[in-house]
Simulated assay, not measured.
Amino acid sequence: MAERRGIAVAAGTTSTTLPAAAHWSEAFDLLATMVAVVQPDGRCLFANAAFENVLGLSRRNVLRRDWFEWFVDPSLLRDTVAAVACNEFSTSRLDAQLKRPFVSPGEPLLVHVIVNQMEQSDVTLVELIEIEQQTRQDREERALDQVRATKELIRNLAHEIKNPLGGIRGAAQLLQMEVESKGLSEYAQVIIHEADRLQALVDRLLAPHRRPHVVGDVNIHEVCERVRALIVAEFPRGLRIERDYDTSIPDFRGDREQLIQAVLNIAHNAAQALGERMVAGDARIVLRTRIARQVTLGKQRFRLALELHIEDNGPGVPEAIRDRIFYPLVSGRDGGSGLGLTLAQTFVAQHQGTIECESEPGRTLFKITMPLP
């Protein structure tokens, strides 16, 4: 493989040189949109970091293949690139579907394609913009606003509950000591028991805000392995946990125990939802790690980010609560407290990260994204 002043070119390509290649490479890699320099014959001379990230492949592998093969229907795009390269148009736009065979679930990505002329003949600059990109950014901003609002709501609500709760329990204890009737004493004991249960719930609500943030070096794969061991110990039969790790992901600074709890809450929910599939013997959870580049989290741009996917083949999140699953006390399972995902979101947010959920019958995917150094 040859290197031309900072732009990687696949082995076997011509010696075409691109002007100011070094600073082009650096500038294009900072873009959130996908950019490629393409010839009409499908030879790709350059692909930026965003293109790598969306395809889930390294730049070297992207450049080895015919660039048009990455699209579901390449004929119109091929004709458009050829027309722009031949100076029939200075620029042209169209919509296309980009294949993503190496990114779960491998579904095509709908993109808006802009093909532009370049000073050099027979070469075009192609920009691909995810049509849902703005929608996703809006969704992330709403999620961050929700985390802040939920945090404040929980803190205020918990304190409002806690103060009268202590008085109720104390009065019930005094009443139990005063009454002689066994029946009345049992009623007082019920009040004490329920007050203790509510106290435990309040403590769980306040736990992430009370617990100190213990920062140290964290290896995400050690976190995943710890969660995997705990899930396997609780569900030893009928459940397969697959690991799909990118071992090149570096360690980062964070609270290891908080992250274990966040991932465990999600994985444990997934395992509980797989009851019927465990009986059938085909229950599956996938733990997948990937690197993302040029990611915006909380209106801040990060050069590198970690993506952790927790995917299962269960029945999916009920549609009625799909938009509210991170709200406190919202649960799709009988007997669930509705706090697991709320706490997971809080712990991830404390690491400047976000959690997203995609769900349909047969596939539920939770994606945790956190910045890397």
Rank of each mutant, 00 (worst) to 15 (best):
M1N: 11
E3I: 12
V9N: 00
G12S: 06
L18N: 01
A20T: 10
A20S: 15
A21H: 10
F28R: 02
T33C: 08
A36M: 03
A36E: 01
P40S: 07
G42A: 04
A47Y: 02
A50W: 00
V54W: 02
W70L: 05
L77Q: 01
D79E: 15
A83P: 01
F89E: 09
T91L: 15
K99A: 04
V103C: 05
S104E: 09
P105S: 14
E107K: 11
L110P: 04
H112S: 14
E119T: 12
E119G: 12
L125I: 04
T135K: 12
A143W: 05
L144G: 08
L144K: 07
R148Y: 14
R148F: 13
T150G: 09
K151C: 12
N156E: 07
I161C: 13
N163Y: 15
L174A: 12
E178F: 12
V179P: 05
E180Q: 07
S185H: 03
H193C: 12
R197V: 09
Q199S: 13
A200Q: 15
R204H: 10
P208E: 03
R210G: 09
R211E: 09
P212E: 15
H213Y: 07
E225N: 12
R228M: 05
I231P: 00
F235H: 03
F235A: 03
D246Y: 07
T247I: 06
D251F: 08
R253Y: 08
D255R: 02
R256E: 09
Q258S: 10
N265K: 08
G275S: 08
M278T: 06
M278D: 04
A280Y: 11
V286H: 02
L287Y: 03
R288H: 03
I291P: 03
Q294S: 10
G298A: 14
A305F: 05
A305D: 04
I310Q: 11
N313S: 06
P318E: 04
E319D: 14
R324K: 14
P328Q: 03
G332N: 04
G335K: 07
G336K: 07
S337G: 05
L339C: 09
T346H: 12
A349W: 01
G362L: 05
T364G: 01
T364C: 02
F366C: 00
I368H: 02
M370Y: 01
L372K: 00
